[in-house]
């Protein structure tokens, strides 16, 4: 793959928390419009990779680029504003702001951070709520919504930033099984529309169906990276085989 054309580029990224090395040299490229799933055991560094891509966690060593932004060189939140506009993130715990309604949660950042026009943002927000099939919940507060509904509002909130990339961090891990499919449906639509997505997930079936490429991480390294059919059916690395043997 041509790394210069890639929208996202990580090269030999290293990160330790205290004495514990979490990323031990991660290199990966993601093309525009590609959906990449990251799978692997807990503590293998999956979520940390996402957080290094949008600058939530500074890397110790290595190179991180998203579009024109050289993330590893950014020091302040101010420098990162344009990056945050381009890269949105959806979290395991939804993280909606509990003091604002669903609609307000979606509208806040475009107005307060990007300075977009309120009326235009409201129209955008209502369209997005419709897209995640929650139009009737516009005025509900997060505490009044189910987990699956909150997560779909969180996806709409990420989309309202009009990002080029969305990072999904185990977004179905905290949901009960019935609501998982609504959230996955919403994500699948985005992937089909050609939005670049990186998903950390434990939903192996979903990863196989939706992604163009799957990366398997173990102990802070990407052990294997291949199209889903190849990685799931013919894993080359013994560690991948062992992991898949446990979860499938």
């Amino acid at each position: 793959m041509n790394r210069i054309d890639a929208l996202i580029e990580l090269d030999n990224v290293r990160k330790s928390f205290g004495d514990v090395p979490v990323l031990k040299g991660i290199s990966m490229f993601v093309q525009k419009g590609e959906a990449v799933c990251i799978i692997g055991p807990s503590g293998s560094g999956k979520s940390t990779i996402l957080r290094c891509i949008n600058g939530l966690i500074p890397v110790d060593k290595g190179f991180v680029r998203v579009g024109a932004h050289r993330v590893h060189e950014m020091k302040s939140e101010r420098q990162m504003r344009a990056l945050r506009h381009q890269v949105a993130m959806v979290f395991q715990q939804y993280n909606l702001f509990p003091h604002r309604t669903a609609l307000e949660n979606i509208m806040m950042a475009p107005i307060q951070v990007l300075g977009h026009d309120r009326a235009e943002v409201e129209e955008r927000a209502r369209k997005l709520l419709k897209k995640v099939r929650l139009s009737e919940k516009a005025d509900s507060y997060p505490g009044q919504l189910s987990g699956g509904q909150q997560q779909r509002v969180a996806i709409a909130r990420a989309l309202a930033m009009q990002p080029d990339v969305i990072l999904f961090d185990e977004v179905t891990a905290a949901l009960d099984p019935e609501t998982v499919k609504d959230v996955l449906f919403a994500i699948r639509e985005l992937v089909e529309e050609g939005l670049t997505c990186i998903l950390v997930t434990h939903e192996m079936k979903f990863a196989r169906d939706v992604s163009q490429r799957v990366c398997f991480t173990d102990h802070g390294l990407i052990v294997e990276s291949a199209p889903p059919a190849e990685l799931f059916d013919n894993p080359r690395d013994p560690r991948t085989r062992e992991f898949l043997g446990q979860v499938l």
């Binding site: 939530l56 506009h85 993280n95 806040m108 307060q112």
Partner: peptide, 20 residues
Amino acid sequence: SIIDAARSLGYGRWARFWRI
């Protein structure tokens, strides 16, 4: 994680404190 969400939406320190 609420603070992570605010940061990922581009809120700087000052705005994050007063708005969230």
